[in-house]
Amino acid sequence: MPQQFTSATYHSICDQLAAIDADFANVISTYGYPPMWSRPNTFETLVHIILEQQVSLASALSALNKMRERVPELTPARILLLTDTEFRECYFSRQKTAYTRYLAEAILSGQINLEAFEKMEDSEIRSQLCALKGIGNWTVDVYLMFVLQRTDILPLGDLAIVNAIKRLKGLPKETSKEELAIIGEQWQPYRTVASMLLWHYYLSSPKAKP
């Protein structure tokens, strides 16, 4: 069974990371433990993550809520009944409309089985999801971290994570993602929880906000 963290182990893992990284210890002592952000393993959740690609979280949630008003129970079959105009009225771009439809079709055809993902290895899940148009590594990272609570994901495609590491470690702006990945190796096998600490720092520290 793939390794996961739970609400029962979350603070303990935070403490283990604080013991090996004084910067994390400082984050916890200053801002407290990070929330254990989680989402249900549903089609709606993946649509939400697609909406979050390259836009603000508030903008993505606004579009999702508008869609919920139109389709109270967001399922693949119901989504596929919507016209381009109806998607547009829910603030979906042309691209994200297409991505949502591709996902719905993949689930209905059995190409993607979200329930089966719960017992599959991260690499196989990534392979299956990235085969769908509009889903890349960032989307898969968020799904693995927030939905399946997999323990060892460091999403260096996420700008907030990149900026948080640089700020927390006092690194120059030009520090490469390869260098950041090397820094992150010390947090294995709990890089997901390290990421939660980084997001918490980014959201809590006035200096870390854009």
Rank of each mutant, 00 (worst) to 15 (best):
M1D: 05
Q3D: 13
Q4A: 05
T6A: 10
T6R: 06
S7V: 14
S7T: 14
H11D: 13
S12V: 12
C14G: 08
D15Y: 02
Q16D: 09
Q16E: 08
A18L: 00
A19V: 11
A22D: 06
D23W: 00
D23S: 01
D23T: 00
N26H: 14
I28P: 02
S29K: 11
T30E: 08
G32W: 00
P34M: 10
P34R: 07
W37G: 10
R39E: 14
P40M: 07
P40H: 10
F43Y: 11
F43P: 02
F43N: 03
E44D: 08
L46R: 01
L46G: 01
V47A: 05
Q53V: 09
V55W: 06
L57M: 15
L57V: 14
A60C: 09
N65D: 13
N65A: 07
E69P: 00
V71Y: 08
P72Q: 03
L74M: 15
L74H: 04
T75I: 08
A77D: 15
I79A: 14
L80A: 13
L81H: 11
D84C: 04
E86Q: 14
E86T: 05
F87E: 08
R88E: 14
S93V: 11
A98T: 15
A98S: 15
Y99W: 00
T100L: 01
R101S: 07
R101P: 07
Y102A: 14
A104N: 03
E105K: 13
A106T: 10
I107T: 04
L108A: 11
S109H: 10
S109K: 11
Q111C: 04
N113K: 03
N113Y: 04
L114Q: 09
A116P: 00
E118P: 00
K119M: 09
D122C: 05
D122A: 13
Q128E: 13
Q128H: 10
L132Y: 04
L132G: 12
N137A: 12
T139N: 07
T139C: 15
V140P: 09
V142G: 02
Y143C: 06
V147N: 02
L148Q: 10
L148S: 09
R150H: 12
R150G: 03
R150Y: 04
T151Q: 13
L154P: 05
G157N: 04
D158S: 06
L159G: 04
A160V: 00
K169A: 11
G170C: 01
S176K: 13
E179L: 06
I183V: 12
G184I: 06
G184H: 06
E185S: 08
Q186A: 15
R191A: 03
A194V: 12
M196I: 05
M196N: 11
L197I: 08
L203V: 08
S204T: 06
S205I: 03
P206M: 03
P206V: 12
K207F: 09
